[in-house]
């Protein structure tokens, strides 16, 4: 059994230690906001935070979360109004929306360490997150807006 916290609540997994954290979060614990896109750290749809650092949950074994704090899109803010989420709505970013949990979690890690990123820093930080609907320019605008409006 592996113990950790998810969004501030105690969580435990009975799965083998090499089980990707993604499936523990989604299927065992029921936080389905985190998405499966590639299983190979190639798309970023499964991005969550472990102790505040963005990780690709699809290639992170659950054993790596032992004793750590995992944050998913559901726990980014208690009421869904993190500055990035407000900015995502203001810029009307999502289309199909499937990648957006990962995009927001990736962006949140950037703003946590760099409150006023340049456009180039945003693009560099976000370039590993794919969006098949092509909402990239709106994502950049939303991150800039969140940085400004805090």
């Amino acid at each position: 059994m592996i113990q950790f916290t998810v969004n501030g609540e105690d969580a435990r997994s009975e799965q083998p230690p090499d089980t990707p954290l993604l499936w523990v979060i989604r299927d065992e614990l029921g936080y389905t906001g985190t998405k499966y896109g590639c299983g190979a750290a190639q798309c970023g749809a499964c991005t969550v935070h472990v102790d505040g650092q963005p990780v690709r949950a699809c290639v992170t074994p659950v054993s790596a979360a032992r004793g750590r704090k995992v944050t998913t899109i559901e726990g980014l803010s208690a009421t869904g109004d993190h500055p990035l989420q407000r900015a995502w709505i203001a810029e009307q970013v999502p289309q199909c929306g499937y990648c957006q949990s990962g995009q927001i979690m990736q962006a949140a890690a950037l703003l946590a360490k760099n409150k006023r990123p340049t456009r180039a820093q945003i693009v560099q930080h976000m370039n590993g997150n794919l969006c098949r609907c092509g909402t990239y320019n709106r994502i950049v605008r939303a991150i800039e807006r969140a940085a400004q409006e805090g």
Binding site: G33, I89, V93
Partner: peptide, 21 residues
């Protein structure tokens, strides 16, 4: 007009087929 699904899709609440339980 703003999309009706944007809030759910910005908070992880939107239910896709893969999320069915």
């Amino acid at each position: 007009v703003e999309r009706v699904d944007v809030v759910a899709k910005s908070t992880g609440r939107a239910a896709y087929g893969i999320d069915a339980r």
